[in-house]
Simulated assay, not measured.
Amino acid sequence: MPTIGFAGLGLMGAGIARNILKAGYPLKALAHRNRQPIEALRAEGAMEVDDAAALGAECDIVFLCVTGAPQVEAIIDGEDGIRAGARRANRQDLVIVDCSTSEPTLTRRLAESLAADGITLIDAPLGGTPTQADTGELQAIVGADDGVLERVRPVLETWTSKIIHVGPVGAGHTMKLLNNFLAMGYGAIFAEALTIGAKAGITPQTFDSVIRGSRMDSGFYQTFFQYVLERDRNAHRFTLANAHKDTRYLASLAEAMNVEAGVARAVRDLYASAESQGDGEKFVPELSDIVAARHQLTLF
């Protein structure tokens, strides 16, 4: 079996790595700043490496599940990055699978430059929640050539319920940004709608009695309102900082494509304002409280 490398043992990555290991693949992992995930993986048979270069030198397929574009670039092209390790070991068959939500322009640029070293980069950003990462039921939204996808498919299948091939390298990250734009757009709309409603005497409970079960209901709506109505912070664990990052990437992509994207900019700016006031580590449904507080309201 190919040796799998993994970098990015956060909320999503830890579950993915565990499912790869459970399927019997040799796993080498780079520690997250929180050591609990790496210690748990080591107890189950994974090996810890000291730096990303070791992943490039010792692994056949390396998965990245890091915060965003700067972290992807650093872990690949840093002094002790994956490329440096692969070069030192003269690895010509390495595949890097970027599961992060990154910038498509960077993805395509890295893929082109890595190819000169015999390294293949594909993008496979995630659809789903940390709970689905734990249970192996995520979606992988893949940008890759057919042949490369078939090579990595058996490993992807250890942690997915659905693999969606959306096009060549970079297409996965593009589609992921579009998906997250829809989700974060709904989050912004829900937050403002609740505040407007509260000002007009409509409680969150009344709001929910109309929307739940209607055509506007959705999985995103239900986890968002699980927080709004039940104060369950764990219902939707996606930070406002990540929401700002993703909407910023989408707005930048629109600009690069010469698309006038006023809605995208407005959504981005709302999340940017929440992060700038120190609320970046709060979760997306808590935006409802932030917007309400700006109007001297409490929703619950």
Rank of each mutant, 00 (worst) to 15 (best):
F238V: 06
S209H: 04
D208T: 01
H244W: 13
H244V: 07
R233I: 14
D217P: 10
K245A: 13
S218Q: 10
F224L: 08
D208C: 00
R237C: 02
A235S: 14
T223K: 02
R215D: 07
G213R: 03
Y221A: 04
S209T: 13
K245G: 10
N234V: 07
R237G: 07
Q205N: 08
R215H: 10
S214R: 01
Q226L: 07
T206A: 11
R212V: 03
H236K: 08
L240Q: 12
L229R: 06
G201V: 02
E230D: 15
K199W: 00
V228M: 05
A241W: 12
F220R: 02
E230C: 09
M216K: 07
Y221G: 05
T239N: 11
R215A: 13
D232F: 06
A198G: 00
H236F: 15
F238L: 03
G219M: 14
R215V: 14
D217T: 11
H236L: 15
D232Y: 03
R212L: 02
S209Y: 04
Q222V: 04
G201N: 03
R212M: 01
N242C: 12
F207Y: 09
Y227L: 09
H244M: 14
N242Y: 14
S209G: 03
Q205V: 08
R212K: 10
T203Y: 03
F220I: 14
